[in-house]
Every structure is written in structure tokens, then in C-alpha cells.
Nucleic acid binder design. Structure first.
Lengths: 130, 130
DNA sequence: AGACATGTTCGGTGATTGGCGAACAAGAGG
DNA sequence: CCTCTTGTTCGCCAATCACCGAACATGTCT
């Protein structure tokens, strides 16, 4: 939310990071962000309540894995790949590669936003269940 | 344990491994094994009871990170580096390198003949073995 | 303004975890 | 035989965790 706390690079600890990635949902979220894209909360489809999803994204943020940006009422998240690679050289790319090869309990839904994003804009989707 | 259970390579899961490494004591143990050596239980000096140390070594074993061998009443442990590297290419060497660079709550004691446990009060100096 | 959408936060709950000591099993050696 | 050493297992306890629904805050849209 507003007062999103992001640890500095030095404050990121290895056990903390590994603990954050030890949950299938969280490593699934990371796998979906592994291409460097920024995703909105609403794109993540996972059989959990929104409060639990918020919890998982907070754990990822406070462990230093992700960076959260807010825009209006929406939040967007991306990996702190460069900083993680600086802190733990070669650990993060390797984990990302392994993560995307694992079964993922999280899937992507249509974003439905009109905001700028770096890559794909799907033409067909645009209808969301009301 | 006497009937030590080791998972097969296929049964090793990434979240499970990362969870096992998310504890400072356990990643410290792994860091001490990172050179490929085999260590006896008694070489690990950590401010924990022996039951808790046994618990941590069991977690490492059952997550597939270590291999335990018994000889008489003593147990020896080593990393399953080759199998881990096969299962998650390049993840494990990277984590090992990061682990040995972290502060380690576990230290090594003498491995040969050691009988000076009762009167020494300076464990800091001379911890370097071999 | 009112209705809606998006996330956070606050209890609460059940499961898991890390820690301990005591008791136990089993080999080594007096 | 008995004892010592090494490690496992068994409660037990406190802390943390994952999860939920409800309530709240805040921004957007009609």
C-alpha cells in the first residue's frame, strides 16, 4: 500500500530470501515475473483470498525480492533482479530458471488495464466477468 | 537415524530445498560442507542441544540436500552436490557460494582426537582446521 | 454524492516450526 | 557385566505461518 517498505540492498539476507521463496505460491509469483515484466495484482490468478495474496506479496516485498509501485488504487510489482544479482551474484538467475521449470499454482489473467506496459497487449481479451 | 530416509533425485522439490536452507543454522551447516568434505556430527559446534541439531540435520537430509552415512555410533554427512546440480542446474553452486560468504552460526571443532571440551574457554582462536 | 474496485489491516484459527530435556537404542570399551 | 558416547525419538511449549472473512482506506467512475 502507501507505506510500502522495501529493504535496502545491504539489508537483504540470504536465509530470508530463501524463506520467502520456499512457498509454492510465492515462487510461482516470482516465476511469472521472471521475464522482467511488471504485473498488476489483478493479473495473478491463484485460489486464495485477496488478503492472503496481499500477504504473500508483502512477504516478497519485505524480503527484498520484489518492488511494489502504486498507481491509483492498483499496485504493480516487479522483481529487483539487478539488486538481487548484486547482493547474491548468480544465485537469483539460477533460481529463476529453476522456478519457471516447476509447476506453478499461479496463472496469469487478462490485465484489463489501459496503462502502459512494456510488452504484450493481447487483442482478444478485454472481457472480464462482471 | 538408523533407518535414514533419503529422497530420490526426482522427489526433491525446489520450495522444499529453499525452505530447508532458509534457516541460518542449516545454511551454516551447508556452508561448512560446501567444499565437498564429509563431516561427523561432532564436528559441528553450534549453541543448540543435540536433539535440535539432530532435527536440523534431519531436515537437510529429508529435503535431499545432504546424505547421511552411519559408522558405528557415529554419523557422517556430506552434500548431494552432484544430484542437486542435476536436479536444479547451477542453483546449488550459486547458493553455496553465497552461503560461505554469510556469517555462520556454526563452527567446526577438531575432527581427529578431541578431548578438550571441558576446560577450554576460548573457542574463537584456532578454529581453522587442516 | 453514491456505487464500485482494489488492496491493506485486523482478529482468529489450525498447522507447522524451532527449541528443550528426558528417555531410549546401540556400538565401543572398560 | 556395566558405563560411556553418540544420536534418535518423544512429549511439550512458544512462536511463527498460511489462510480466511470482515472491516477499512482510497481511488475511480457514473
Amino acid at each position: 500500500m502507501r507505506n510500502a517498505v522495501h529493504p535496502t540492498v545491504d539489508a537483504i539476507s540470504l536465509p530470508h530470501v530463501l524463506g520467502a521463496l520456499s512457498d509454492p505460491v510465492r515462487i510461482g509469483l516470482v516465476a511469472l515475473l521472471a521475464d522482467g515484466s511488471e504485473r498488476g495484482w489483478g493479473e495473478f490468478q491463484v485460489p486464495l483470498s485477496k488478503s492472503t495474496l496481499s500477504h504473500h506479496l508483502r512477504v516478497l516485498r519485505e524480503s527484498g525480492i520484489t518492488w511494489t509501485r502504486q498507481e491509483g488504487t492498483r499496485c504493480f510489482v516487479r522483481l529487483r533482479t539487478a539488486e538481487l544479482s548484486e547482493r547474491f551474484p548468480s544465485v537469483f538467475p539460477a533460481i529463476l530458471a529453476a522456478a519457471v521449470a516447476e509447476p506453478n499454482p499461479v496463472t496469469l489473467a487478462a490485465s484489463g488495464d489501459e496503462d502502459s506496459r512494456d510488452c504484450d497487449n493481447n487483442p482478444d481479451v478485454g472481457v472480464i466477468a462482471s
